[in-house]
């Protein structure tokens, strides 16, 4: 069923009742898996992703011959001077409507693994952990658009939880445009955070930025769109990322506050506690 975008003007509502500049509900949790070094669970609307981080640890033996192809790895092997970031994505068969089973060799999944591993390798301080490996496994439980963005956000949360030093949060979100490519509507408006239906019908892109800056770590656009619309979409996407960063930051801070109150960690000494003797 084609998506009716006639109501998608600036003042009006989208198919799920959001405005053009509204994110879906984002719910994040960290420390969800007891046995992992770091873990997270993230919902962006109905897209639900779990992430588990193991490491940095001694690189284990490569499992089977297919491991080289099945896992996106940045950095060169276990014996390099930087830690290797190995990403593994499992998309559950029940996660989407059509119950399609994706094999491990699926090129789209491989590409996402590669993207994630390179995105994280750019921000994690991998040079601090020579000869080691950071394993990130992601499980997609439910898909409703913006999958890559949700994966990046979940992986960031889990890496923060695992206590791996990083330059800043990498946060991602999607942006789109209100009319299809064919309509060639010059007055098309940008849209924030596409759901599955919008992703199918409208041109869109996924953008991941570093912290609060405008620096783009990853930019993936898979649909045909006029070059003139790119600027608007990118601007909306980058701003959305900042919003997402704020939300993720609150998730981490809440955990930190809880730990301070419980007395698990010290309250620390800051610059203002200048009681030097």
């Amino acid at each position: 069923m084609p998506l009716d975008t006639s109501t998608y003007g600036l003042a009006l509502l989208r198919v799920d009742g959001r405005r053009w500049n509204e994110l879906r509900r984002i719910h994040g949790q960290i420390r969800t898996q007891a046995a992992a070094d770091g873990s997270s669970y993230l919902e962006m609307g109905h897209t639900k992703v779990m992430c588990v981080v193991t490491g940095p640890s001694e690189p284990g033996p490569r499992r089977g011959g297919a491991a080289g192809g099945a896992s996106g790895g940045a950095g060169s092997g276990g014996q390099s001077k930087d830690a290797e970031v190995v990403v593994n994505i499992v998309i559950a068969g029940f996660s989407s409507v059509d119950r399609k089973r994706r094999g491990r060799g699926d090129k789209r999944t491989l590409e996402m693994q590669f993207t994630l591993s390179n995105t994280l390798a750019a921000t994690l301080h991998t040079h601090l952990f020579p000869h080691s490996q950071i394993n990130i496994s992601l499980h997609v439980l439910s898909q409703d658009g913006s999958l890559l963005a949700a994966l990046i956000n979940a992986a960031t949360l889990a890496c923060v939880d695992a206590g791996i030093p990083m330059t800043d949060y990498v946060t991602a979100c999607t942006a789109g445009s209100t009319s299809t490519y064919a309509a060639n509507d010059e007055g098309a408006d940008p849209l924030l955070d596409l759901n599955h239906q919008e992703e199918q019908e409208l041109p869109g892109l996924t953008v991941a930025t570093l912290g609060e800056s405008d620096k783009v770590v990853a930019l993936v656009c898979e649909s045909r769109v006029q070059i003139s619309r790119l600027e608007g979409m990118l601007a909306v996407g980058v701003d959305g990322c900042k919003q997402v960063r704020e939300i993720l930051d609150q998730v981490i801070k809440a955990q930190g506050r809880k730990m301070i109150l419980e007395g698990t960690v010290d309250k620390g000494t800051g610059l203002n506690d200048m009681d030097l003797d």
């Binding site: 993207t115 994630l116 390179n118 995105t119 994280l120 783009v216 898979e222 769109v225």
Partner: peptide, 18 residues
């Protein structure tokens, strides 16, 4: 015709949006 068919910046060093 000035239509973007695909953009792929798959991670790597952060670059200013501009």
């Amino acid at each position: 015709h000035g239509e973007i068919c695909q953009i792929a910046k798959l991670g790597g060093v952060p670059v200013e949006a501009v």
